[in-house]
């Protein structure tokens, strides 16, 4: 028998079974959809938090001050060193005149500078780090400090590390809660599918007694699970898209949803595909675990 023939057989049988057991199938679709809805909140909020923290991290700059004696070769060497570091995103040269201009906005400092009679500032480099770089920068800072012509390097170490830790924590909490919800749903889906399988145990026993190959015994059940998961996933996606388009304003008043609703279009598409994949995964895994039950294995 060709692969296509087998595939056609499995698809047809799985679909027929799905229609035959409408009750359990509906229950599974509802369980999958509600699970995915919860997961979408975790995923969306985690993604939203991630973005917010990343943009906060972006604001942390590393400032490098040159000594007044620093010459052009010192500046070039330091710039090259920064350019070769993968954590560095953007490097901008700020001359002491530009820095002075900026400080003059504050009347207090302007008065002090006038009293000094000369520009006390030095040339500096403003370094913006790459998005998502959460590791320590101590090694880079130390290297820069040792470079000739560098007077000082300044960066908000503790704030930077706090933001990095928060970012990691948000991700882990999101994954942890999402994983818990997924596993709970998997348990429920698997048990509901076990009930559906029990209702059809006579059919399964006939197959086993006649020596049906594994793909014939398992294929339709796994496909049925996949279909139920897919339907649950599609329902969730339709619901979320409706909320995003229609009920956006009304739902923004509830905490957390504004984070979710504020995601850009690309993230939404990614979220939808993830949810569909998770739905199918939930259905297939649920069916797989149902087929591992002892009484099913004893029939084989």
């Amino acid at each position: 028998m060709t692969f296509l023939f087998r595939l056609g057989f499995v698809l047809k049988e799985g679909f027929t079974q799905l229609l035959r057991t409408r009750g359990p199938s509906t229950a599974i679709v509802i369980i999958v959809a509600s699970t995915l809805l919860q997961l979408s909140l975790f995923l969306g909020i985690t993604r939203g938090l991630d973005r917010a923290l990343s943009s906060a991290k972006k604001k942390f700059e590393l400032a490098l001050f040159f000594a007044p004696s620093a010459d052009a070769s010192d500046r070039k060497r330091v710039s090259d060193l920064l350019a070769s570091d993968p954590r560095v995103g953007e490097v901008k040269m700020v001359t002491k005149e530009e820095a002075l201009q900026e400080f003059r906005g504050d009347p207090e400092i302007d008065r002090m500078i006038q009293a000094l009679g000369e520009n006390p500032l030095t040339d500096s480099l403003s370094v913006v780090l790459k998005d998502g770089e959460g590791g320590s920068l101590d090694d880079l800072v130390e290297r820069l400090r040792r470079e000739p012509g560098v007077e000082d390097v300044d960066y908000g170490k503790s704030a930077w590390e706090t933001v990095s830790r928060l970012s990691r924590l948000a991700r882990w909490v999101g994954w942890g809660l999402g994983g818990f919800v997924f596993l709970t749903a998997l348990f429920i889906v698997s048990n509901t599918l076990t009930i559906a399988l029990w209702a059809r145990r006579e059919d399964y026993l006939i197959l086993a007694r006649m020596g049906a190959p594994l793909w014939m015994k398992w294929g339709p059940y796994l496909w049925e699970g996949a279909l139920q998961g897919l339907v649950g996933g599609v329902l969730t996606v339709v619901f979320l898209e409706t909320v995003r388009r229609g009920a956006k304003v009304a739902l923004q008043q509830y905490g957390g949803l504004d984070l979710l609703l504020g995601l850009p279009d690309g993230d939404w598409k990614g979220l939808y595909w993830t949810l569909l994949g998770l739905g199918v995964g939930l259905g297939v895994l649920g069916a797989f675990f149902a087929l591992q039950k002892r009484w099913v294995r004893e029939m084989q």
Binding site: E202, D203, R209, M210, G211, A212, L214, Q300
Partner: peptide, 24 residues
């Protein structure tokens, strides 16, 4: 082994009263 037994069973025809037809 289970897979060998399935293969073996596929060459045997059985008419057992308790081995029913698929009802649906």
């Amino acid at each position: 082994a289970p897979s060998e037994k399935d293969r073996w069973l596929r060459s045997v025809g059985v008419i057992f009263p308790d081995l029913e037809l698929f009802p649906d």
